[in-house]
């Protein structure tokens, strides 16, 4: 959770910097185009005009490409954020369903959520305005309903699914046991 806002602000800063750069380029381009037009009115055959017109054309093309790149960056950032939202929502739904299966009471559900988020007993008690003993008792009931030994296993219950099958450890002990 701490990582995403950072990613978010970095993305924002990057697009802001790109935009400011694009603005400076555009201002420069407008002045250049004005200059080229007045040169054209003076003497369209001068080397000065031809050279400056070429440079200005390159500048215009660069700005168009820059605009396009900026738009793609913004789209990409938005897509990433949306994917993250979907993942978050999906994980939330999975957790909700599991809590229902375990028949947790509403109070237990809240405590379980906070525990999953990594808060310790004192913090949970603080947030809920309850005594630490109460929270400890609720956690014990949650663990027993979930059939896990403790906090680490409780958290692992949900992370396990996200990790897939890539657990290389057990294979060695398995052969050793046989």
């Amino acid at each position: 959770m701490t990582l995403t806002p950072k990613l978010h602000t970095t993305g924002r800063r990057q697009t802001m910097a790109l935009s400011l750069f694009l603005l400076v380029q555009t201002v420069g381009m407008v002045f250049y185009v004005g200059d080229v037009i007045s040169d054209f009115r003076d003497n369209p055959e001068s080397v000065h005009f031809i050279f400056e017109a070429t440079v200005t054309t390159a500048l215009v093309l660069g700005i168009l490409f820059g605009t396009f790149a900026l738009r793609r960056t913004i789209d990409l950032l938005q897509a990433q954020e949306q994917a993250l939202d979907v993942a978050r929502g999906a994980l939330g739904a999975v957790i909700d369903r599991q809590f229902q299966d375990w028949a947790l009471t509403p109070a237990e559900r809240d405590v379980a959520f906070l525990a999953l988020k990594g808060l310790d007993v004192a913090e949970i008690a603080d947030l809920r305005g309850a005594a630490q003993g109460t929270v400890r008792a609720q956690l014990t009931r949650i663990y027993s309903k979930a059939g896990v030994s403790g906090r680490a296993q409780f958290a692992a219950f949900f992370v396990e699914d996200l990790l897939g099958e890539g657990v290389p450890g057990p294979e060695v002990p398995k052969t050793a046991a046989h």
Binding site: L22, L23, M29, V30, L64, T67, R71, I74, Q78
Partner: peptide
């Protein structure tokens, strides 16, 4: 005024190419 022209131009292009 010329700066305004640039801003207006940029926003117009952005109205076609932007998000």
């Amino acid at each position: 005024g010329w700066g305004l022209m640039a801003l207006l131009l940029l926003r117009t292009v952005w109205g076609v190419l932007g998000p």
